[in-house]
Simulated scan of single mutants.
Amino acid sequence: MAKILVIRFSAIGDVAMTVPVIHSWATQYPRHQIVFLSRPSLAPLFSNLPDNVSFFNADLKGRHSGWKGLYVLFKELKALHFDAVLDLHNVLRTKYLSLLFRFIGTPVYVLHKGRWGKRKLIRRRNKKLVSQKNSFQRYADVFTKAGFPVLLNFSSIYGHEKGDFSIIQSVTGEKGNAKWIGIAPFAKHKGKIYPLELQEQVVAHFAQDDRVKVFLFGGGKEEEDCFKTWTDKYPTVTSLIGKLTMDTELALMSHLDVMLSMDSANMHLASLVNIPVVSIWGATHPYAGFMGWKQLPTNTIQITDLYCRPCSVFGQTPCYRGDYACLYGIMPVRVIEKIESIVF
């Protein structure tokens, strides 16, 4: 029996993208074990995985912070006697841990990020609009290098079921015959956020439709202020900020009929519970390899004939045109029609 340490610290979406690979591996290699090392806040993503997957908390803001803290973390992990280490992050912290494991003779296998292909995708001149290998396959490739080829056959963290409705009922009420639409309007970077004044038109449209119920997903002060404004205007809309944990949020997502999301973590979370996602892409592009698990390209909304996009892999690059045409050029009616084509 092999015991494997798998490392990925952030971000939420990237860690969520490891789940289909970890789950597929765990069901195909039931005699072997995985210990997944990440931040404590991300543990709920792994709570419904097979029994041969466990989670190890990396307290990167506490006892495991800094180089000394990482050495403490290494000593704690060393005591578990791993047969191999898989670094699915490939950043300074994980490179340091990998180096320490190599010193004691533990084989280490590292993620190849395909940076050169992505650079050609986003450069201003002579772009190469070629679809890059997706992150799921890149993660699976690391397992293959370690001697564990994996068939990616994941469907949902709940299998063929939905999440426990009883843990969300006090927040959502009964579903009945209504169609439930989740809307996650924010992302980490401006280049990935559909303008809020346009998104509000989408919210307003569905708020007036008694066949549906809208739930707003997000967190943070800016999002809370925005959601407060929207729910004051549209009382049938429900903000979930402060009402759910990640566990219960995933359970609620599993009961949605569709999620509207940016190229952000919520696209990936909804994908883990096998829910269709209408995703909006501005500065970024699905060709970079970050589309949600088994999401249909037909459910992406983007301007495909804009010469300057994509201009960023992660959305952090300021718009050099200055007008964010990639986002402002998407009309709300287009988003509405796509959602309605799925739920009705």
Rank of each mutant, 00 (worst) to 15 (best):
L5T: 05
W25F: 02
A26S: 14
S41V: 01
P44K: 10
N52Q: 07
K61P: 06
G62C: 13
G66V: 07
F74E: 12
E76M: 05
A84Q: 14
L86S: 02
R93H: 02
R93I: 00
T94P: 00
L99C: 05
Y109F: 14
K128E: 13
V130A: 14
S131E: 14
N134F: 02
R138L: 11
K145P: 04
Y158I: 04
E161S: 03
K162H: 15
D164Y: 13
S166R: 14
G176V: 13
W180S: 03
G182T: 06
F186L: 13
P195L: 11
L198P: 01
A204R: 15
K213C: 02
G218M: 00
E224I: 03
D225P: 00
C226T: 05
K228G: 02
T231W: 13
D232I: 00
Y234W: 12
G242R: 15
L244R: 01
L250N: 05
S254M: 05
D257Q: 08
V258W: 01
M259L: 12
L260Y: 05
S261D: 08
D263G: 09
S264D: 08
A270I: 06
P276L: 09
V277W: 04
S279Q: 02
H285W: 14
P286D: 09
W293M: 09
N299G: 07
T300A: 04
T304H: 07
L306V: 04
C311L: 08
V313W: 02
Y328D: 07
I336W: 06
S341R: 09
